[in-house]
Amino acid sequence: MTETAASVYVNEFEGHLVGSVQVELTESVLANFREHLLEAVQRTRPRGIIIDVSAVPFMDVQEFTQLRRVLNMAALMGGRPILVGLQPGIVAALVEMDADVEGLETAIGVEQAVRRLRDSTPDNEQKEFAPEFDVAEEADTIAGPDDAGSPQQVDEPEGQKSV
């Protein structure tokens, strides 16, 4: 986890980036967020870029527009940005103010965004992120530390098939 500033975080999760802003989007917060997010996109090559703003108490049209620019930048780098968690009051005001929301992918929450990204990922691409926790643990205990790097070689014991 990278803490970029007070209440701005960029985390990696299942091959995606989850950026979380928990304060109002002042110019310095936005600049900081942009810098760290784009750096993380380049470094981790995520499939999805989930931007969680559920803890942002207020966002005016200009701040929203600036945030969109950051999302556009991330998209230009090849990621798929999804904006998550806009609060009802903010949404109502943005639409009344005629803010440009065209072409913006959104989700109700981080879980929904992750599920959508998972559903839209081809199976062969999904595999490298697929191992569930219990499988990985099995691999470790059975194969020992030497073979831990190649879990696909490990057969699961009968009767313990993980879902």
């Binding site: 207020f58 049209v61 009051g89 903010i90 009344e96 103010m97």
Partner: peptide, 28 residues
């Protein structure tokens, strides 16, 4: 001004959503 507007709205008894709309107008 925006922060005060939101505060005032909530103190006056507006819900969070309405306070947000008023604050957006003030911001504009």
């Amino acid at each position: 001004a925006i922060m005060r507007a939101r505060q005032q709205c909530q103190e006056a008894g507006f819900d969070v959503s309405t306070s947000c709309r008023v604050a957006t107008a003030v911001s504009e």
